[in-house]
Design a protein around this nucleic acid. Structure first.
Lengths: 319, 319
DNA sequence: ATAATAGTGACAATCGTTGTCATGATCGAA
DNA sequence: TTCGATCATGACAACGATTGTCACTATTAT
């Protein structure tokens, strides 16, 4: 095997093993320990963070910031990748903020001048906007870590009703419209609930006594469908004007299908839980004249009531 | 210089030059042409897409998909980068869709097994959601290209009033809530306007007679502030409940500052163009009891009127 | 035709790589 | 303490890879 190939494979191998001795590698690669030593020194010079300890039980170690085998990207791929991480800059909080920034600058730095020029030209001409939020999300890494390792966390949660302390086991975290959410099994309610991460004011490992529940097979793509069946459902029918379609896709897109006609208008036809009627009432009021609810009657009633209340407020004020 | 170093530099050099002859390179690197030929063959085998033509004015060329010098990422950086481009998968339309996908799979493919495992574990546990849209955005690349190269495009635009044909010069494109927008200088209105990309039904190079205007210095970050001064402004004051804050940040965050008090409530205090009163009226109606507008009177009047209309509609229906 | 270019094969000179050996240093365990 | 496991370094000869040179072919624009 040629030296350069051996170096590549060596890099992958040490990344895989994390801890190893010179002899081991020499056997594995069929070369002498002396050669391996020379190779390791070269890897070191190439930036692989190696650390060695002498003595029995000593050996080599790769420090935690492992270096991946270099990947060659085409120019187009690099540009795409650049803008992908560029898009994340709008997030003040990320589970891996600093890494994302350093990857971005590494990219930028290593690129040949003319590609950099091209990126510079495009930088201010493509963007993925995310609403800027004042809310703080200090525990994203902890929540994600707990989700991956299936651990229970004890959190301080500031809900509308006041601050409470509860044990949860996160399913995962996701950002939507610039806010972070965390669906998690709540040991208090004994079901999966959605938490807003900015309301989580504290998070630490729960008591060892708290046994994790089995959330294998439950993840971000399917937890919503695992809703408890206790709910009572009512049937929603609404007619949508063209202006209303995007707003419905925005807020309801993942819960129901939005039917669109040729002329741009559309309609909704779906079952919704009775408990969410207030939410829907307010939502359709917000759509104004672009939407009109046909059913259920409970919803139209509620809309009327809410409209009257609002109207009273605004009439009271002006008089 | 060692062979491997020379190969690296060669890769960068050919990427920079795009077109070159063997002799040139031989001179530049101080080796014989024979060696360069051997090196180029190796680069070729390593995936650099080289193409050669014999004869006078012949020579080597790098095909358009240039390969960048390999960049070594740490594990954490790779994970961050992976999730950045993972986040883009929600977009059905992107100005560089296929490249983004191939970069993602290249990443995944070249990663050592255990990092891949780690990513697999996290894949379903972190997400950046974007509303799924049915709208189509077929001309993103064309718009972006025109923005970068400062070209004029002739587009077919389907606005509320019907389809029209106009010449525009894009400032850039951006995605917000899953929809793509394109601020552009409109030669019809003679000012910068915001176009929704899904309403652009056709796009092609405009007449050569259309002279591009100078949009240097105007880009996505500043075009909004270049609004024509013709507008009439009114002063908005509104009181916000805690629930209303996120929705205001979402929709108004980039136009005005949202003041937040200790207790979670907040207020708005900003100038808005009179022409947008209907938009604001509807917006505050959508906030329901969580917001109340104090001023301007025109706005509260409008809100009252709209509420009455809505109420009539819903009362008419139920009777 | 001519000149400019790529492409290949052969060979010897050169240079880099490897294994072996000797030596040293450090550390943990017996 | 001594012993063995480990990293670390230097010297050198054997080996193998790389390089330059030369001779030759093939293609093409002028």
């Amino acid at each position: 095997m040629s030296k350069s190939k051996r170096l590549m494979e060596l890099m992958m191998t040490v990344n895989r093993m994390r801890k190893f001795t010179v002899k081991e590698l020499a056997r594995e690669f069929g070369v002498s320990p002396r050669t391996i030593l020379r190779d390791l020194q070269e890897l070191s010079e190439l930036g692989v963070p190696l650390y060695s300890e002498v003595g029995p039980h000593g050996g080599y170690q790769v420090l935690k910031e492992r270096v991946l085998p270099p990947i060659a990207f085409t120019e187009e791929e690099a540009v795409a990748l650049f803008f992908a991480s560029h898009a994340l800059r709008h997030y003040r909080y990320l589970p891996f903020r600093s890494e994302s920034a350093s990857a971005l600058s590494k990219f930028y730095h290593y690129m040949p001048g003319d590609v950099r020029d091209r990126i510079d030209e495009m930088k201010n001409r493509v963007d993925f906007r995310t609403p800027a939020r004042q809310a703080e999300f200090p525990f994203l890494s902890e929540l994600l870590d707990a989700a991956v390792r299936q651990r229970v966390l004890r959190i301080d949660y500031a809900s509308r009703e006041g601050e409470s302390c509860r044990d949860i086991q996160p399913v995962g975290i996701y950002a939507s419209h610039g806010l972070w959410y965390c669906p998690a099994y709540c040991f208090l309610r004994r079901e999966i609930r959605l938490f807003r991460c900015d309301r989580i004011k504290g998070a630490r490992e729960a008591d060892a006594a708290m046994k994790p529940v089995d959330l294998n097979g439950i993840h971000l793509d399917n937890w919503e469908s695992l809703d408890p069946a206790e709910r009572e459902w009512v049937h929603l029918v609404a007619e949508l004007g063209p202006e209303a379609i995007p707003r419905c896709e925005d807020e309801l897109g993942r819960r129901m299908t939005i039917h669109v006609r040729e002329d741009g208008s559309g309609w909704l036809n779906a079952d919704i839980p009775r408990s969410e009627l207030p939410y829907f009432a307010r939502f359709f009021i917000g759509l104004g004249a672009d939407a009109s609810v046909g059913s259920p009657p409970e919803l139209t009633d509620l809309i009327r009531r809410m409209l009257r209340e609002l109207l009273e407020r605004y009439e009271g004020k002006s008089n």
